[in-house]
Simulated scan of single mutants.
Amino acid sequence: MANSGLRERKKAKTRETILREAFRLFREQGYHATTTEQIAEAAEIAPSTFFRYFPTKEDLVTLDSFPPIVEALAIQPPELDPLGALRAAFATAFTSLSDEQINAGRDREVFAATVPDLIAANLRKSPRIIGEISRILADRTGRAPDDPELRNIIGAAFGVVAMVWIQWARDDTMDAPAEVDNALAHLQSGLKV
Rank of each mutant, 00 (worst) to 15 (best):
I154T: 02
S4V: 08
R52W: 07
A112H: 04
T14V: 14
D147H: 13
T62L: 03
L97S: 04
V110P: 02
M163R: 12
A120N: 07
L25Y: 07
T36I: 13
E149V: 10
I69D: 02
P148K: 11
P116R: 08
G30F: 10
M1D: 08
R20C: 06
A144P: 06
P127S: 13
A22E: 03
R52M: 11
M1G: 13
F51N: 09
D181F: 05
I45S: 06
L184A: 00
P116I: 10
F54A: 04
V61C: 06
T62D: 01
D146H: 12
R170V: 04
T92Y: 08
I69M: 12
R20G: 07
A121R: 10
E21P: 08
R124V: 13
L97A: 06
N152D: 15
A104T: 07
A74M: 12
R140C: 04
A85D: 01
R106K: 14
E16A: 14
P55N: 07
T49C: 09
E132P: 01
A156Q: 13
L118D: 09
T56I: 09
R27M: 14
V180Y: 02
E44Y: 06
A22M: 09
W165K: 06
P127C: 14
I129Y: 01
R15Q: 12
D64Q: 09
F111L: 04
A178M: 10
I18D: 01
K57P: 01
I45M: 12
L184S: 01
V61K: 01
W168Q: 00
A178N: 06
A112V: 05
W168T: 02
R27G: 07
D172P: 11
S96D: 13
A176L: 03
R87P: 03
A43W: 02
L184F: 01
D175P: 00
G105K: 04
D172V: 10
K10F: 15
L191P: 02
V115I: 15
A93P: 04
A112Y: 01
A185V: 11
A85G: 09
S48A: 15
A40W: 03
P177S: 02
S65I: 12
S48R: 14
A72C: 08
G142D: 08
H32P: 02
D64R: 09
F66Y: 15
D181H: 08
I119N: 00
L19T: 00
A93K: 04
E16M: 12
R20I: 13
I154Q: 01
N182W: 05
F158T: 06
G30T: 10
A22G: 08
M163K: 10
F26G: 00
F26D: 02
R15G: 00
S98K: 07
D81M: 11
R106T: 06
P177E: 02
R124M: 12
L123P: 02
T173N: 09
I69R: 03
I154M: 02
R124E: 14
A113N: 13
E132M: 10
N182D: 11
A185R: 15
G142V: 06
N3T: 07
L118R: 11
F23L: 08
A178P: 00
T92G: 05
K57A: 08
M1H: 15
R106D: 05
A74E: 14
A157L: 11
R108Y: 06
R27F: 15
I153N: 01
Q188D: 05
G142I: 08
P127A: 13
T49Y: 10
A169D: 03
A40Q: 04
D59N: 14
T173L: 09
